[in-house]
Simulated scan of single mutants.
Amino acid sequence: MGLGVLAGVGGEVLLRRAGRRVLEPHQLTGPRVAVVLGAQTYPDGRPSRFLRGRLEVARRLHADGRVTTVVVSGDDRAPSHHESQAMRRWLVEAGVPAEDVVLDAHGYDTYDTCWRARHVLGLDSVVLVSQSYHLPRALLTARLVGLDAVGVGDDSVRGTATWRSGVVRERFALLKLLRDVATRRRPDASPPLGRS
């Protein structure tokens, strides 16, 4: 069976099952570690509206004592922006203690973030934080790399054009995930930058 067929037929079933692990914040029993998946930042260091939504979810989870540590995982390769550093800065300015934030500058995509959480940071169980439409694939990714995860989603930007295009893009991203798993792609194994 080709990847395209699996993504279309079996992939939908896998995503539906993974989606059952999306929880409301009050359903979390702690303490846990949150992993915030990266998204666009601007050249001046500001997180995009999508990323701010994710960060606000993580901030609330931390403030409510549902998570004790927040891993910010993003792509810091481009000289014009550093996602994980922008994420840390936003959280600290919003009141999360700097010592509770861990930077992962090598979270180039969802697969890399989940793989690194399990195999580099040594985490067994996490709360993934992203937009709600992204969480089923993110949770499936976690499962396929050996990471036990539940998700808490952000819906603050639901209905925007970017949200709608993101929903469509998820289908193609599933194909990439299945290829990454089938080829056992090994992400960058550099250590995280540690606590800020």
Rank of each mutant, 00 (worst) to 15 (best):
T113Q: 10
R118Y: 12
V96L: 04
V72A: 09
A94S: 11
G74F: 08
V92P: 05
P97A: 00
A105G: 08
D104N: 10
S80L: 13
W115E: 05
A117K: 13
M87G: 14
Y111L: 12
A117D: 05
D76V: 02
E83P: 00
D75L: 11
R89V: 03
G74I: 06
W90K: 03
S80P: 00
V67W: 11
D112I: 02
R77S: 13
Q85Y: 14
D76A: 11
R89F: 03
R116C: 02
V102T: 05
H106Q: 11
T110Q: 08
S73R: 09
V96R: 02
D109A: 11
W90Y: 15
A105N: 09
R118V: 05
G95V: 06
G95K: 04
E99F: 06
A94V: 01
M87A: 15
T69V: 13
V72F: 12
D75G: 05
V96D: 00
S80W: 15
E93W: 14
D75C: 07
A105E: 14
V101T: 01
S80Y: 15
T113N: 10
D76H: 13
T69S: 07
V102Q: 01
A78T: 03
S80R: 15
M87I: 04
D75V: 07
T110K: 10
D64V: 03
L103R: 14
H82Q: 08
A105L: 09
V101K: 00
D64M: 08
D104M: 05
V101L: 02
H106L: 10
V101P: 03
R66E: 06
Y108T: 01
R77L: 11
Y108G: 03
D75E: 10
Q85T: 05
V102G: 02
R77A: 12
V71W: 15
R66F: 08
E93F: 12
A78P: 11
V71S: 08
D112K: 01
Y111F: 15
G107F: 10
L103C: 03
P79W: 14
R77K: 13
R77P: 00
R66T: 02
W90Q: 04
Y108R: 09
D76Y: 12
P79I: 03
M87K: 12
D104W: 08
T69K: 14
G74P: 04
V67L: 08
R77G: 01
V102F: 03
L91H: 07
T110H: 10
C114M: 15
S80I: 05
A86F: 11
L103Q: 05
V101S: 00
P79S: 03
C114K: 07
S84W: 07
D75N: 13
R118A: 07
A98E: 14
A98K: 05
V71H: 11
V96T: 05
R66G: 00
A94Y: 06
E83K: 10
W90T: 01
G74R: 11
L103S: 01
A86W: 12
T69W: 08
T69Q: 14
G74L: 09
S84N: 08
T69P: 01
A105Q: 15
A105F: 02
A105R: 15
T69F: 05
S84F: 09
T69Y: 09
T110I: 06
T113P: 04
H81L: 06
